[in-house]
Amino acid sequence: MASDKVLQLNDADFDAVIKGAQPTLVDFWAPWCGPCKAIGPVIEDLAAEYEGKVTIAKMNVDDNPATPGKFGIRAIPTLILFKNGQVVDQITGSVGKSQLVALINKAL
C-alpha cells in the first residue's frame, strides 16, 4: 500500500493545500479512533488511484485542534472534500470505498 501518497496536513499548511489546483479530500482522524483505523487502507488505496487528479490528505485532530474546530467536526473519521478552498461535501463514519469514490466524483 502506498501510504507515502497520502499527504499529512497540519493547521499551518491546511489552507494552502485546500486552495490548490486539485480538489482535496481530507480525512480527519486520530490514533485512538478505531473506525479511523478501519478506513485507513481505503484512503491509501484512493491516494494511489487518484494520484495527479485529487489530493488525498489526512489530518490528525489531536495534533491540530484549530482546523477541525473551524469546520465544526465533532465525530471522526470525518472526510471533507474541498475544491478551490470551498467545502463540496462531507461524510462522517467508516464508509466503504464506493461511497468515498462517489464523494470524490462530486469535485471532478
Partner: peptide, 11 residues
C-alpha cells in the same frame, strides 16, 4: 450526524 449525533463514544 457528525455534528453532535454519534454512534461511538470511544471515537
Amino acid at each position: 450526524r457528525g455534528k453532535g449525533v454519534s454512534y461511538c463514544g470511544t471515537c
